[in-house]
Design a protein around this nucleic acid. Sequence first.
DNA 1: TGCCCCCTGCAG
DNA 2: CTGCAGGGGGCA
Length: 296
Amino acid sequence: MPELPEVETIRIGLSKKLLGLTIQRVDVLNANSFTGVVKDIEQKVVLDVWRKGKVLGINFSGGVSLLFHLKMSGQLVFQKYANLQKVKGETRFVGGHPTKDMAGEMPNKSTRVIFEFDNGSKLFFNDQRKFGWIKVVLTDQVVKINYGMVNQLGPEPLDEDFTVDILKRNLLQHSKMPVKVALMDQSVVAGVGNIYANEACFLAKIHPQTPISKLIDADFANLHKGVIKSLQDGITYGGSSRSNYINSDGEKGYFLDYAFVYGREKLSCKICNKMIQKIKLGGRGTFFCLACQLNR
DNA sequence: TGCCCCCTGCAG
DNA sequence: CTGCAGGGGGCA
């Protein structure tokens, strides 16, 4: 999915657009994508758009909230009624900047849920692979139900109280695990997925396969910095669009242009010029530089 | 702690 | 055709 930077980019975009709007109706095109009663959020006003790890939340009036998990292929695309345009003779919505909008005509074959607001604007939940979900929950139950996740959600890496010690303690819960796999465990730190786990290991100069038990204190400090830096850079460049990630304006993100290792197998390392390697760890593509990243 | 699975589409 | 893809839950 979209990892933390992609979800944060969507959150920022939606926050600007949705606050104060009232949901007029909800159209669920794929029943498995939506849990809860549609009527519970109809006629409710958007009060807040927030994020926890990779979970996006919208709080409404009446003490009700929506939780979103985009998993691998989820998109949330907002299209303003005022942006109705003629394109090639067909009427369609254009969400953001007309030349940057990659979303195209909405809804499309991947659209699973449509939210329609009182001003005619629409929010489309598209999810090609149908792994994502939307849940209607009570706002005061969100924390209690662990943001809709089964496993415990770890600390927010961009919060000030995310310290080296906390990261170290959480990683040490998985002493035999390769460090890159452990970083992707949402109970260790919330929001890190495959792209940013690879990048964080590179920034920390640690081989992704290194077992947690072999890390020294300097490694934990470097991983802490690497996680934060990679995620912040991800947000700066609007996220990563490997295949189908787009933000709420239908725009791609450009972090992968700046990535050191992810998706760069057989290309040369931006630091030392040696060839980036690709292996599989925990069933996921894993990228690293043999020269820059130490395997203890 | 690892597999396998959910599902769709695309590259090789 | 096979394998692979920003995730994570269930099961042995």
